[in-house]
Amino acid sequence: MNIFRLAGDLSHLLAIILLLIKIWKTRSCAGISGKSQILFAIVYVSRYLDLVTTFISVYNTFMKLVFISTSVATIYLMYVKFKATYDHNHDSFRIEFLLVPCFLLALLINNAFTPLEILWTFSIYLEAVAILPQLFLVSKTGEAESITSHYLFALGSYRALYLLNWIYRYYAEGHYDLIAIFAGAIQTILYCDFFYLYITKVLKGKKLQLPA
């Protein structure tokens, strides 16, 4: 564990908490893509299957359980409790266009051709693109509430901090995983346009609004 990794994990946790606060306080999931949330739940479940096979640390187990349970809770809030506020007309991204290619790529490029390893690889590829339905929704409506912007910023920062963690681990421990590094770089690049808008608009107190 190094400072970049810890900061990344905390940023990830913060993102999830911000999203739950936004939905709970406004009693609404308007502006949030249910498709992205479903993809994140698939990411966590397929990646953390090793919970039952490998023990790494109390921290590791705890965080995995938190990520799985909060993503299920988010889906429950969106599709059951606050269903009436869910913006499904704008949330029209076809997730099979992400799920199928990620799974095929995981079958082709992986560290080992075993079920758990293929699912881990699939989750890494899927996570890289899971935010696309959310970014698509923001671009369709042309705006995002400020708390949704903070959520997206924290979520994007998490993998960017992991990139720093991987650079650190390469030099400090000689550890690297090309699949995670490659997917993490793609994931971070997808947020760049949003990061720019966040820094130039939201941090100056303006609403995140895309030019018409």
């Binding site: 990794r5 090793d50 490998t54 790494i56 881990w120 550890h175």
Partner: peptide, 10 residues
């Protein structure tokens, strides 16, 4: 590389 290691990251 981590090929043989468990995935210790989240």
């Amino acid at each position: 590389s981590s090929t043989k290691d468990a995935h210790d990251e989240l």
